[in-house]
Write a protein that binds this DNA or RNA. Structure first.
Lengths: 226, 226
DNA sequence: ATTTTGCTTAACAATTTATTAATCTTGCAT
DNA sequence: ATGCAAGATTAATAAATTGTTAAGCAAAAT
């Protein structure tokens, strides 16, 4: 898979908080992006595709809940972990936040140390999500542990990128993955590869599998379906 | 196998207990790591890969059961022995603990002396676990006790590392072991050896066995299959 | 003390995979 | 129909990964 780099986006309108948290997370190996208001956060998120987004609720331009709501409408942010920074005991925000797709909350004020360990635990959650077990559909079975795909119980060997690509698409059958999403996930959004690279890999997968399970959605991306 | 060093991780929120137990175990040749809360324990565990993990149930941040549950989701901790420290007669914890993958319990309070002998016995169990069970597949039989592999009942002498490597791979046929996993298990996660070391050992195994039972998964690792 | 055995490394060969570039197809809009 | 845009294909090339061999060293055995 692409990056070992763990990207965190933090949005808050207090520069001091941004600075100190950002510094501490960087110390622990995270790549941190900071935004000073809601709109900035959205722009940045779309640019760098963070793995974890931390949003202050009260922000200029667009508050955290708005930002979350808007990001969640995009497929690329469906699985991103989004958490809110809230004042202690702000029940209302909690409720509204969960409605709009937040994954969790962090109560303010928070020490950098606690913040780091919170973030660590979010990433453990992310990893667990990704570890996932065998995917099985019709005659096709994808075994992540074996790094092999079976079609009618016959093993088919895919190369690493091919296997990862197929697994990714098959992780949500029917859902269209944008070319950009695929690049981000499999190649990493800092790696720059040509336009046709994905196509060629898709081609090889189709060829090796011999069955038609990857559909092209022109101008958009690819999806897996039987 | 890798280190003769026996690593024990103890998590408890009482510094005194940590200190006295840790001291006594060290006297008996164990390398001890201590954690003061659940999250700390998880972090440490992932870092040092202890052979035995002792968790107090009641801890800040994350209780022992949570820690256990979380570690057990990771393949690397599937076979690690995890035991709980519990207040005497805490039936409920026992039940829940076993559900979440604990191997055993130690009742508090416990004297350092008893603790040491408990730990000793856990390590005997670990050794027994790792030895003793012969793996047999097709014409191939791996005898851990004898440190010998038989092919069609003809003994084949593998060197120590070769034997360990083969046994490890064969412990889960079909499953791909990452190069890193292999290094961790067979060489130890602190030992640094060159890139080609694994390959050379694999080569020798293949050569000596004469049959093709180790498959390379490029960019990923190796797996055993007949 | 000498030999043997096992582990590691280094250098290079071989193979496999990834990427690009160039050339077709195809569907769609004009 | 015609021209374009987006993908598909293919082959060539680059990059990454592994295989192989030989040699040095250290520890164990003789």
């Amino acid at each position: 898979m692409a990056p070992e780099i763990k990207k965190v986006l933090i949005a808050d309108d207090e520069p001091d908080i941004l600075e100190i948290i950002s510094y501490n997370l960087q110390l622990h190996g995270y790549t941190v992006f900071t935004a000073k208001d809601g709109e900035h956060a959205i722009r940045l998120a779309q640019e760098v595709h963070p793995d974890l987004i931390i949003l202050d609720i009260m922000m200029p331009k667009k508050n955290g809940i708005e930002v979350c709501k808007q990001l969640r409408t995009q497929p690329a942010f469906q699985d991103t972990i989004i958490v809110f920074l809230t004042a202690l005991n702000d029940e209302l925000s909690h409720v509204r936040g969960l409605e709009f797709g937040a994954d969790d909350f962090i109560a303010k004020p928070i020490s950098p140390k606690v913040m780091v360990s919170k973030v660590n635990s979010f990433f453990r959650r992310i990893n667990k999500q990704e570890a996932s077990k065998a995917i099985e559909m019709g005659n096709l079975r994808i075994e992540p542990e074996e790094y092999v795909v079976y079609y009618k119980d016959e093993p088919i060997n895919l190369a690493k990128k091919e296997f990862e690509l197929l697994s990714y698409l098959a992780s949500k059958p029917g859902r269209v993955f944008l070319r950009n999403e695929i690049l981000n996930k499999i190649w990493g959004n800092d790696v720059i590869v040509g336009d046709r690279t994905i196509d060629v890999h898709i081609r090889k997968i189709r060829q090796k599998l011999g069955i038609d399970c990857i559909t092209t959605v022109k101008g958009v991306g690819y999806k897996f379906e039987l």
